[in-house]
C-alpha cells in the first residue's frame, strides 16, 4: 500500500513537473510572440493547434467552422500576446479565448438546435430525427457504440452554449472544475451547477432510449 501511494505521488510529481516545463516553454514562446517572432508563433501553433481545433470541432460539428474559429483564436494570440499578464497558465488563457469565440459563434448562429431541417444534412441525421421522436425508435438502429456516441452527441447539442462548453472541457479535455472556472471566468460552484444541470438534461433526453434498451 505504501509502495502504491509513493508511486502515485511520484506520478503526480511527474505530471506537475511536466506541466511546469510546458508552462515555462509556453511563457517563453508568448514573450517571443509579443516581440513579433514568427518562428516562435509557428512553434506555439504546433503545440496547440490540434487541441484547439478538436475542441472547436466537437463544439461546432463543422470542420470549416472549427478551423475558422481556431484561426481567430491564434490571430487573437498574435495580436494580444503583449497583453498577457501571466496571472493564469498560458493554456488556460488560450482555452478562454477559444471558449469565448465558440460560445459567441453558437449564440450568433441562432439555429434551432433540434429542428428537423437542421439535422437532415448531418452525418447522424437518422439518430437526431429519432431524438425528436423517441417513440419512433427502432431497436436495431442502435446496435453499435458509434451510434450510441452519435446519440449522446446529438443530446449534447440540446444543451445551452455554456453547458455544452463545460461538458466538453470536463469530459474531453479532462479539465478540473477549478480549471474550467478559470477558463470560463465563473466560480467553481457555478461550474458545478452548470455541469449538474447539463447532466440532468442529458439524462432526461436520453432516458427514453435507455428504457427501450438502446443505450
Amino acid at each position: 500500500m505504501g509502495q502504491v501511494k509513493s508511486s502515485k505521488t511520484k506520478d503526480l510529481n511527474e505530471i506537475r513537473g511536466s506541466r511546469l516545463d510546458t508552462e515555462n516553454r509556453d511563457r517563453i514562446l508568448i514573450n517571443k510572440i509579443a516581440k513579433r517572432d514568427e518562428s516562435a508563433f509557428e512553434e506555439f501553433l504546433k503545440y496547440y493547434q490540434h487541441r484547439i481545433i478538436n475542441l472547436l470541432y466537437r463544439y461546432t460539428h463543422s470542420r470549416s467552422d472549427a478551423e475558422e474559429l481556431a484561426q481567430d483564436v491564434f490571430i487573437n494570440i498574435w495580436n494580444r500576446a503583449d497583453s498577457f499578464k501571466g496571472r493564469s497558465r498560458v493554456s488556460t488563457w488560450i482555452y478562454r479565448i477559444a471558449c469565448n469565440l465558440a460560445i459567441n459563434h453558437l449564440k450568433k448562429r441562432k439555429l434551432p438546435i433540434l429542428s428537423i431541417d437542421g439535422y437532415i444534412t448531418s452525418p447522424s441525421s437518422r439518430i437526431k430525427k429519432d431524438l425528436i421522436d423517441p417513440g419512433a425508435l427502432r431497436s436495431e438502429s442502435f446496435t453499435d457504440n458509434k451510434e450510441k456516441k452519435a446519440l449522446i452527441e446529438a443530446a449534447i447539442e440540446k444543451l445551452s452554449p455554456a453547458q455544452k462548453m463545460a461538458i466538453l472541457l470536463s469530459r474531453y479535455e479532462g479539465y478540473s472544475y477549478a480549471e474550467i472556472s478559470e477558463i470560463m471566468k465563473i466560480s467553481v460552484s457555478a461550474v458545478e451547477s452548470l455541469l449538474f444541470k447539463a447532466k440532468q438534461k442529458l439524462r432526461t433526453i436520453l432516458l427514453p432510449f435507455k428504457e427501450k434498451g438502446m443505450l
Binding site: 490540434h50 478538436n54 470541432y57 472549427a66 457504440n145 450510441k148 449522446i152 469530459r171 474531453y172 447532466k199
Partner: peptide, 11 residues
C-alpha cells in the same frame, strides 16, 4: 452515458 464521451475521433 458519460463513458461513451471520453473516446472520440479527432481531426
Amino acid at each position: 452515458m458519460l463513458k461513451n464521451l471520453s473516446a472520440e475521433e479527432t481531426i
